[in-house]
Design a protein around this nucleic acid. Structure first.
Lengths: 144, 144
DNA sequence: TATTGTTATACTCTATAACTATA
DNA sequence: TATAGTTATAGAGTATAACAATA
């Protein structure tokens, strides 16, 4: 058997575990909102007026999931849907001012958590981690 | 705004998305079993006789989740629970020969998928990715 | 006829607490 | 009395298909 050189644990197991643990620590209490809500709002920060189909792709939700999540966000007055004048089948989703406030508060909580997670890494290592994860993200999205 | 130097997208978003996409692609059809079942069996491969509490920690499940998953595995004849003679409250969980077979088949499917995901990376980059993800995994497990 | 979003429905996963048996 | 595992239950999350409005 010789050198038991660190069995490859598997990306899937590692990513799955990390994702679960991150979700457990991103509670509604610390974020001020559900993680899913935060992920949608922070997407709206970078993409001011998007259709629901865009959100499906960006957040890996199905059409139904987007509707349900937006219902929650609108109930909290954090986002609004308005008809697209150019195609009245479409909605354009936007963040409200109070949505932005809530998102920025949650963003601070996210930064605090992530700072903990990478505190033992150098700046270079952090950049490398992001770069490599983005590569994985590109690859995993390919149909098959 | 000058240099839009790549806003830090956030580890949480990236990991969440990758995890979702990986799960979508790790179908029962390609693995021959559910991903959760595979993760448990591959843990048993490396830890031949474990208590259910060990599985809770290792797989980030609660006691109930372990019971339910083991029920499925036993129904498929892939694992067995036997009483620990030294403490009859405990179960020792073990993989059956057919469980090993099924696991090894699923392992090949996992390797195929992961090969795709890292195909654009050098050997060094792959090792670095694993190393850094393990650091994140250590850090995210800390209580708070 | 095709597309966007909605509703309705069911299925899976996860979390909680009460219960059994062993210590 | 405390622990390991189980059961029961409800809650959240996810997936499917039928539907309404608009193109």
């Amino acid at each position: 058997m010789g050198k038991e050189s660190g069995r490859e644990d598997g990306l899937i197991r590692l990513i799955t575990q990390i994702s679960k643990a991150m979700h457990r620590r991103s509670t509604e209490e610390t974020l001020g909102m559900k993680l899913k809500a935060f992920l949608l709002l922070s997407y709206l920060r970078d993409h001011p007026a998007v259709t629901q189909q865009e959100l499906e792709g960006a957040l890996m939700l199905d059409a139904n999931g987007v509707v349900l999540l937006l219902n929650e966000l609108e109930a909290a007055r954090w986002s609004v849907r308005r008809r697209d004048p150019e195609d009245r089948r479409r909605h354009l989703v936007e963040m409200t001012p109070s949505g932005r406030q809530a998102m920025e508060r949650a963003e601070k909580a996210r930064e605090n958590l992530e700072r903990e997670l990478v505190q033992d890494m150098s700046v270079d290592e952090r950049a490398t981690l992001y770069r490599l994860l983005k590569k994985v993200w590109e690859a995993v999205q390919q149909p098959a």
